[in-house]
């Protein structure tokens, strides 16, 4: 009898996700769950979830979770990791959560070099609340609070979080990947794997930004949204390694 080549990770519950059709959050959930299974970490893991679409992951993940208030996941993760250093701790945050209301928490968690992994899903919009302007909304991109498109004269330019965080000395691994294509999803998984390994090795703070889509609030089909990502998001937010100490050695 052949062994199953592919099966649902134990770190995922047997449940249909609550995410909109075409949204890549489910993909990110799956990558995390696969890696936790591969590392044998499911029973050691505490995931810290945000407020926003990411909160819905609490119905998908099959390991211990702590749900933070809006933007505070890096502070909550700090408390978790400092009190339970034997646990594997990651945060899962969107762009409104991490780059707007939680900007202070993420910068200081990174600056302390907390030995946690931050997974930043950037889809350039507030999804859960219905498509308002995010700190990462692109210039000209429409939102429900900027119906003519983002005007930098009024609201400034999209914030590049990898570039900001990589100015700090403590973080060990700061990279950006995209979820627009199969090769890039594989690259994203490899980056997450590296970030997880860093924590297991006690190396300190790792930050993986994953460029994603929001078909519902962008008003596009899934394939159109991925095309739009390639034509716009990935041009403004370049994929790459902003801090990778091993690579530099």
């Amino acid at each position: 009898m052949m062994a199953a080549g592919y099966k649902r990770p134990e770190s995922l519950q047997k449940r249909i996700t609550g995410y909109c059709p075409g949204c890549m959050h489910g993909q990110v959930n799956k990558l995390i769950a696969e890696l936790l299974d591969e590392f044998g970490l499911r029973e050691k893991t505490i995931g810290v979830l945000p407020i926003g679409c990411g909160t819905l992951s609490m119905m998908n993940f099959n390991f211990d979770l702590v749900i933070a208030t809006h933007g505070r996941a890096p502070a909550v993760a700090t408390g978790v990791k400092r009190s339970a250093p034997d646990r594997f701790v990651f945060t899962y945050q969107g762009d409104g959560d991490l780059a707007a209301i939680g900007l202070s928490e993420i910068m200081h968690c990174a600056n302390r070099g907390e030995n946690v992994t931050v997974i930043f899903v950037n889809n350039s919009i507030y999804g859960m609340t219905g498509g308002q302007l995010a700190p990462t909304t692109l210039v000209g991109q429409k939102s429900t609070t900027t119906v003519q498109g983002r005007n930098p004269k009024e609201v400034g330019y999209p914030m590049k979080m990898c570039e900001l965080i990589s100015q700090l000395q403590a973080p060990r691994y700061v990279v950006r990947r995209a979820l627009d294509s199969v090769p890039n999803v594989i690259q994203a998984k490899q980056a997450l794997k590296k970030a997880f390994q860093n924590q297991l090795d006690g190396k300190g703070f790792s930050f993986v930004e994953l460029l994603s889509n929001c078909p519902t609030n962008w008003g596009l089909s899934q394939s159109e949204s991925l095309e739009w990502m390639r034509a716009n998001t990935m041009k403004y937010f370049p994929i790459g390694d902003f801090r990778n100490e091993e690579a530099a050695l």
């Binding site: 505490i46 810290v48 702590v66 933070a68 208030t69 505070r72 502070a75 909550v76 993760a77 700090t78 408390g79 978790v80 990791k81 400092r82 009190s83 339970a84 646990r87 928490e105």
Partner: peptide, 9 residues
């Protein structure tokens, strides 16, 4: 919020 995280453990 750090206290919240610690208490959760």
């Amino acid at each position: 919020n750090m206290v919240y995280g610690s208490a959760a453990t």
